[in-house]
Amino acid sequence: MLKYTFKRILMMAPTLLGITLISFVVIHLAPGEPTGAITDLNPNVSLETKERLRTLYGLDKSIYEQYYNWLTKVVRLDFGHSFASDRRPVIDKIWEKLPVTLILNVASLAIILIISIPIGLISAVRAGGLFDRLTTVLFFIGFAAPSFWLALLAMRYFGVELNLLPISGLTSLNYSELGRGGKIIDLVRHLLMPLIISTLGGFASLSRYMRSNMLEIIRQDYLTTARAKGLPECTVIIRHALPNALIPVITILGLSVPTLIGGSIIVESIYALPGLGQLFYMAVMGRDYPMIMGSLVIGAILTLLGNLLADLGYAWADPRLRDTAFK
């Protein structure tokens, strides 16, 4: 297990290098200079100051030198200082916002799993039945509905009309006065709507996937054998078919990490949640280059970690791989 994990982590190194290269190229190929955001609109900036800023940020060097210098800092997770008015180190700001995004995404992954596995299972077992057809249509609709639209409608209905849930932010104004239990309830109430919205897009595709997996497995001979032994249908499905249908789901979960992280930009900026998505959106709006590059690299690293966990999970769950991988 350890050896395989270690090998998998080592294999990530070249990918990480590639990620930094793409992040760097994306920002530097585009027209306009990174310092332009500070100097262009400010009439008091003299040519001299512009030159000094260029030297300060190393923009007078060749592009290779710039990449090398940036890379040597990024290896130590030093992404420089934000261009925003607080001028704080990029990595500090990211660490501060990361928990909200992680909690939101891990929780919605959990909800997606809990809902879509039974739904996929039932639609496959009763393929072509009323439940199957109904969920198929509903999922097509859920898949096509823009999340920001659903978020707005939910805000209007649950927030304004029924006045059930708070419509923005992570905590209420009186948060600091609440007891521990009150604090948790307050947080959950604030996170409930964003969670449901970020879950809706995901469980449509996962249930469809689960359904087709199950359909494939139900046809296999070993299930006929199980039935022939006289096992009740319920045991056949739950004990014999389900585990094998679940294994590939791990891969899909890993693959859905970038979509979820990307989706948090929209959910967090609509519900004013202080997470990585909102931070990145603000950085883009303010052309905060160090912040953009930092978030881009961290976003990709999160995706890589998601894939790593999925691969390890797969190797652990699939007996065919377990024997070779974990020797």
């Binding site: 990918t15 793409i22 994306v26 027209p31 970038p258 929209i266 950085a283 990709a300 995706t303």
Partner: peptide, 23 residues
């Protein structure tokens, strides 16, 4: 394929917004 895999590492919304920010 290496290039393809690298591009897939980025949450697409992040990549798209980063480029749009420059343009």
């Amino acid at each position: 394929m290496i290039f393809c895999d690298l591009m897939l590492c980025f949450p697409s919304m992040f990549l798209i917004l980063a480029v749009i920010a420059m343009l």
